[in-house]
């Protein structure tokens, strides 16, 4: 088909990645399966960030608030109100989406540097709010959700989310769902509009597009993905703390996406995986492991701005979505 990436190859690649990750569940040693579970959940966070940063060209410095909205939106009802897992997960996503709608509505009145600072400021407000209501959130110390509350019950089925294998599989389901939806969006007219807005906003206006609503839709979508990741994190790993709302968690998805390749569907996974292992490795022998984060950011932006998959796409595989 003209003007389209070859569908067969694209679907085969994504299916292979998901299948490969499924097989890893049965192959990986216990420790690494745990790491991969976290990476898969956080990769969904990075993919959400990528929708806005990579495809729409909006650099937010405040995405921790959407992740944390999902984290608290799901975690607080379980902890305080004994909600069951499924409605809590939904509550997490809805919290993120609603927050994204409100923040997007305000922040999208600005552009460029002002957009970055405004998102940073709003995220900081969110972080401070989690500290202010420390009676309910226990602030930086955070809440640990009891193991017996982390069960997914459907009819007679009772699944303990604390089981390592099940936890991995649920993380994979979340990851795959976000990946497939992202792929679908990227190849849809809406995805094409987002990329075009990134390239030239004024031209899009003169093609009859309401640029603001399209960007707002991207913010909400991005916020909902990040919140889904946050909600899953709370329910799968049972910890909810203010640290996840701090600036560091706004910087990390930016780093993961930059490393893996902005505006690539699989880049966020690669970036998250690499960075997670690099940090995991260095934190083993030095306390100042965040030095790696700083060095990676500078080296990437100086010498490797397209990231891993972005560079591969440029040189060898222009069909990569």
């Amino acid at each position: 088909m003209t003007g389209r990436a070859p569908s067969g190859r694209v679907f085969a690649l994504h299916a292979a990645v998901i299948l490969g990750l499924l097989i890893l569940n049965f192959v990986l040693p216990e420790y690494h399966r745990g790491v991969f579970s976290r990476v898969l959940v956080l990769a969904a966070f990075a993919m959400g960030y990528n929708i806005l940063f990579g495809y729409t060209g909006l650099l937010s410095l405040g995405h921790a608030m959407f992740f944390a909205a999902g984290l608290y939106g799901a975690g607080l009802p379980v902890y305080h109100l004994d909600w069951s897992v499924a409605p809590a997960f939904i509550a997490g996503i809805v919290s993120g989406a609603v927050l994204a709608l409100a923040i997007g509505f305000l922040a999208l009145r600005t552009t460029g540097v002002a957009f970055m600072i405004v998102t940073l400021m709003f995220a900081q407000v969110f972080y401070l709010i989690t500290l202010f209501f420390t009676t309910y959130t226990r602030g930086e110390e955070g809440l640990v959700i009891r193991q017996d509350l982390r069960h997914l019950r459907m009819g007679d089925l009772d699944l303990a989310l604390t089981d390592p294998s099940l936890r991995y599989l649920i993380a994979l389901v979340l990851f795959s769902a976000v990946l497939i939806v992202t792929l679908f969006i990227v190849r849809s007219p809406f995805g094409r509009s987002l990329v075009a807005i990134r390239e030239n906003e004024e031209r899009m206006r003169m093609l009859g597009y309401n640029v603001f609503t399209n960007k707002l839709a991207a913010v909400v979508l991005s916020g909902a993905f990040c919140a889904a990741s946050g909600a899953a994190y709370a329910l799968l790993f049972g910890y909810v703390g203010s640290g996840f709302a701090s600036i560091q968690y706004s910087i990390l998805p930016l780093l993961w996406v930059l490393l893996g390749g902005a505006a690539t569907t699989l880049g966020p996974l690669i970036g998250t995986l690499f960075m997670f292992y690099i940090v995991d490795f260095t934190s083993g022998f030095m306390p100042a492991y965040l030095l790696v984060v700083g060095a990676a950011l500078i080296l990437l932006i100086l010498f490797f701005p397209k990231g891993i998959l972005g560079s591969i796409r440029e040189r060898w595989a222009p069909w990569l979505p």
Partner: peptide
Amino acid sequence: FANLTAFDNVALSVQR
């Protein structure tokens, strides 16, 4: 849109 194909450029109009 310099980084998009000619097809995608026109597709933006048609899809609108």
